[in-house]
Nucleic acid binder design. Structure first.
Length: 264
DNA sequence: AAATTTCTCAACCGCACTTCT
DNA sequence: GAGAAGTGCGGTTGAGAAATT
């Protein structure tokens, strides 16, 4: 069929986002809302592909993103949800308010899967491995050569590869979000500067969160922010429900039906 | 102190699904 | 109904930081 690529790559910026690009994207989305990612970069004055803009917004700039360390409770929840759902990162992320699928995926790959292995548990099946004969071997990291070039990744499925079957898409818990800072003053630590959304952008939703910059005007993560959704009670309710489910240890049956309910 | 290796995570890619025309 | 456009997901990469030699 020959679909056109999502955007012409010619002349577009790639790699890490600059504070200026972040600002343009945030301002545009505040003014016009999310969506229309393909046309957004042009309208926002960004030399980026729409996908890149969407990813940057979803994984980094959204004001309701909670950053900072994953708590032990969250870890436990991720492990249990992963045992139910597998690598359905967006679905798992939907159950951890403020966490992104990318963050959870990274955390799983770098921390949790290794920990499970070291505890003698197969991170794929969540079953105990035979003590003297572990079948699952961590795929050794490929030696990476420092190179400016990206490899040519024209991956085509081979005859040997199984076709992927896509399950129904997860429901996202989206909401308009209010953020408040935990800091009593508006000065961050280490010379960071917290800029209220309302000053940074024209915010007609009376958002009360902050963007955090360092001295170089680099956007810093908003880990110290406590984010609250307008529907926070819904999130709380769902989260509590999960924790409750996870605490009970007759849980497998319950969790199975719960997992099924997620897939509806 | 320098070189090398390992780790982390933001960003990219390809593909499938959904919506639009 | 067909094809194009838009969107979202999971897998993977690689630059930079941190740790080790």
């Amino acid at each position: 069929m020959g679909r056109a690529p999502c955007c012409s790559k010619v002349g577009l910026h790639r790699g890490p986002w600059t504070p200026r690009e972040d600002m343009l994207l945030v301002k545009y989305i505040q003014a016009h809302g999310e969506g229309h990612w393909r046309s957004l970069p042009k309208k926002a004055g960004l030399l980026r592909c729409g996908k890149s803009c969407r990813l940057r917004w979803m994984n980094y700039l959204r004001p309701d993103i909670k950053r900072g360390n994953i708590t032990p409770d969250e870890e436990d929840l991720i492990i249990r949800l992963h045992s139910l759902l597998g690598n359905r990162w967006s679905l798992i992320a939907g159950r951890l308010p403020g966490r992104t699928d990318n963050e959870i995926k990274n955390y799983w790959n770098t921390h949790l899967s290794k920990r499970l292995l070291s505890q003698g548990t197969d991170p794929n099946t969540h079953k105990k491995l035979p003590p003297d004969n572990p079948v699952v071997v961590l795929v050794p990291k490929k030696k990476r050569k420092k190179s400016n070039k990206r490899p040519n990744k024209s991956k085509k499925p081979t005859d040997h590869e199984k076709p992927k079957i896509h399950l129904p898409k997860p429901i996202r818990f989206t909401s308009s979000v209010q953020c408040t800072t935990k800091s009593s003053s508006q000065g961050g630590e280490n010379g960071q500067v917290l800029v209220p959304w309302s000053e940074y952008i024209n915010d007609d939703e009376n958002r009360t969160g902050f963007l955090c910059y360092n001295d170089d005007h680099d956007l810093i993560n908003n880990s110290d922010f406590e984010c609250q959704s307008h529907h926070h009670h819904d999130h709380d309710h769902i989260y509590e429900e999960y924790l409750q489910l996870l605490k009970t240890n007759e849980d497998q049956v319950q969790l199975d039906s719960f997992a099924e309910s997620l897939l509806i």
